[in-house]
């Protein structure tokens, strides 16, 4: 526990911006840009389960892809203190090809859709072996690890020579998880790992992820739009809206005392089994007045019930509302 203070956070993201240019006309002139991720900062400590939540299109997946080095960033820094770099954080840009490969061994990903993220022409054995071949494991160790990993995710070894189409959605997601964990990474990013699954299967996968996180003392970034799942898994979370983090804090802070109006709306919108939603019938209006949004003001202004003049003038910075519960709103 002591080295938690001495160690830098495993992942620290500072003022990250990812903009995609919009090109138009014959000469593909840049006409503006989509700000998929706009100036976000957060850090994830060792052994922590950090969740990013928000509606679709708010930039969760783009953030994850940028951390994985799959999408180039526009500005900002991502420092990764992983594997051999655990005392001296690195940046994707600082690394050569060999370094990037080494980093990827310690930073793995589980994808959302278990149907399209497994190659249909590879057997389970070759799917699980591929990362081990890439990272130069000996043949003997490869088969040992595959055996261990399969039993950890609850699949029998007789499945090794089957193809992905012979499995159900839940089993495929187990294979996807096994593939991510097989190189014993320090950090796993799980992008909506349960949202494509049946409810009865969802619980199995959530429990599996919890067990694996404990076994490997893993750091995990969990991306989801389902707040109930997030509450169950995460220690800390960040709520994203239109490319910005509007609120972040521990699981208790966010769920017991949400501050930002958007977080409140999210929590109130969820229908609970047997009870329905906690508040009904507030606002069939919205969407139409999204043209209201000011260029420099708060992005949530058009939908916000607590908006004031001030929100139009400048974007509220994240401020500390006590015990590192951060919120970006003038009025709470």
């Amino acid at each position: 526990m002591n080295n938690q203070q001495t160690r830098p956070p495993v992942i620290s993201v500072n003022n990250l911006k990812v903009h995609f240019p919009i090109r138009k006309g014959v000469f593909s002139n840049i006409q503006g840009c989509v700000k998929a991720v706009d100036d976000i900062s957060f850090s994830v400590n060792k052994g922590e389960m950090f969740a990013l939540v928000g509606e679709s299109g708010c930039g969760k997946t783009t953030t994850a892809q940028t951390i994985l080095g799959l999408t180039p960033k526009t500005s900002g820094t991502i420092d990764l203190a992983i594997g051999p770099w655990n005392q001296t954080p690195v940046n994707w840009n600082d690394l050569d090809k060999k370094g990037k490969k080494e980093l990827r061994k310690h930073l793995q990903v589980v994808f959302q859709d278990p149907y399209s993220s497994l190659d249909p022409r590879m057997t389970i054995e070759s799917i699980l072996e591929e990362p081990l071949v890439i990272h130069d494991y000996a043949k003997k160790e490869r088969s040992d690890r595959i055996g261990q990993m399969l039993s950890k995710v609850g699949l029998s070894s007789e499945y090794l020579h089957r193809f992905p189409h012979e499995f159900s959605g839940g089993q495929r997601q187990r294979i996807g998880i096994a593939r991510a964990f097989i190189t014993e990474p320090e950090v796993v990013i799980a992008d909506e790992p349960v949202s494509a699954l049946d409810v009865s299967i969802q619980a199995q996968i959530i429990n599996l992820l919890q067990d694996l996180q404990k076994d490997f003392n893993l750091t995990m970034i969990f991306i989801s739009h389902d707040l109930a799942v997030v509450r169950h898994l995460a220690n800390r979370l960040g709520v994203m809206y239109m490319g910005k983090i509007v609120e972040s804090g521990t699981e208790e802070q966010i769920f017991n005392s949400p501050l930002h109006p958007y977080t409140r709306l999210l929590l109130e919108s969820i229908p609970l089994p047997g009870k329905g939603r906690s508040s009904k019938g507030q606002g069939l209006q919205d969407e139409q007045n999204s043209s209201l949004s000011a260029a420099k003001g708060c992005t949530y202004y058009p939908r916000c019930p607590k908006r004031t003049e001030r929100c139009l003038e400048s974007y509220p910075d994240l401020k500390d509302a006590g015990e590192s519960h951060l919120v970006s709103c003038f009025n709470c």
Binding site: S200, A228, V229
Partner: peptide, 14 residues
């Protein structure tokens, strides 16, 4: 099996 938004956090039944 459903994870709950309120109440005690416990391991999910499966």
């Amino acid at each position: 099996t459903i994870p709950h938004l309120h109440g005690k956090k416990q391991r999910l039944n499966v």
